[in-house]
């Protein structure tokens, strides 16, 4: 045993070094966005020609960008609200009830996670065109809701799991209806998970390119605007500046989501044993 103990730290330190290297690899592309977004020269290479905030100042002066940002906001909020609503229903059904076909239904709802996005997008496109829906931000929302639901579901099921059922039974025994129990007992316990799901699905919708690319009509969302700009080398710094802002936005939203998710997990778990 003691020789093993002595062996462990060396293996551990190799692993630790690898872990830091790997984290470096993961953050490598992310780090260059902010760096080159303050570069005076439009071509991204070292050493920097000089630093400037010009690219950031130009952003609000681009009407196409402002339109795209509004579109993304509208699509993101709608997709987040819808996918979280559908996610709540499904996550609640999966964690609380046993019913026939539970596993295949769960599988179908989670399927967009493991399907190539292009195939999901063109399938929806075909059906929408055949139903006579004209492509617009509305069709983008429909598509985003589908790909956001699996993420909402995972956040929400982790929030709903470990939830002590005896609390709900107690509420029912004390005379609450099923709906009343949900509103007054379940909902307050799972609110953090719900907000976390809203933030995660908003972020996914905000970042998604493929679905929006296929399903939008003439209106562009932010990623579609960026895609259009990527063709012009001179526009790169502006895109990098925009990307940096999006990066900061996503980071803030997801940090909040993560803190809330953990609080939700702690709340449902720490209160469980009290009533067991």
């Amino acid at each position: 045993m003691t020789t093993l103990r002595r062996l462990l730290p060396s293996g551990n330190s190799w692993l630790t070094a690898y872990a830091f290297l790997y984290i470096g690899f993961l953050y490598l592309p992310v780090v260059f966005l902010p760096i080159f977004s303050i570069n005076t020269s439009a071509s991204p290479k070292f050493p920097l020609a000089g630093t400037t905030l010009q690219w950031y100042r130009d952003l609000p002066k681009t009407p196409a960008l402002i339109d795209a940002a509004w579109n993304s906001l509208i699509v993101g909020v709608s997709a987040a609200v819808l996918s979280t609503t559908l996610g709540i229903l499904a996550a609640r059904a999966i964690t609380r009830y046993r019913f026939p076909g539970r596993r295949p239904i769960h599988g179908l709802i989670m399927a967009p996670l493991v399907l190539p996005e292009v195939i999901v997008a063109i399938s929806m496109l075909l059906v929408m065109l055949q139903l006579g829906l004209s492509l617009s931000l509305f069709t983008v929302v429909l598509g985003h809701v589908l790909i956001c639901i699996p993420y909402s579901m995972s956040v929400l099921t982790s929030g709903f799991e470990g939830f002590d059922r005896s609390l709900e039974e107690a509420s029912a025994d004390l005379g609450e209806t099923a709906f009343g129990t949900f509103r007054r007992v379940t909902l307050p316990m799972v609110t953090p998970a719900i907000i976390s799901s809203l933030l995660v699905s908003f972020t996914i919708s905000l970042d998604d390119f493929i679905i929006a690319f296929f399903l939008t009509g003439t209106e562009a969302t932010l990623p579609i605007y960026i895609w259009g700009q990527l063709r012009f080398a001179a526009k790169l710094p502006g895109v990098l500046a925009l990307g940096t802002l999006l990066l900061i936005g996503s980071f803030v939203l997801l940090s909040i989501a993560e803190i809330l998710r953990r609080r939700a997990a702690r709340r449902t778990q720490s209160e469980g044993p009290l009533h067991a």
Binding site: L86, G87, L89, A90, R92, A93, I94, R96, Y97, R98, F99, P100, G101, R102, I105, L108, I109, A111, P112, I119, V120, I122, S123, M124, L126, V127, Q130, L142, G143, V145, L146, I149
Partner: peptide, 28 residues
Amino acid sequence: SESFQGLALISPTLLYALILLLLPILVV
């Protein structure tokens, strides 16, 4: 019954996935 309540609760999400995922894949 538990089965009925569970199915009823999951049906909107299931319907959404059926119409916007399974049906489109069948159409393709």
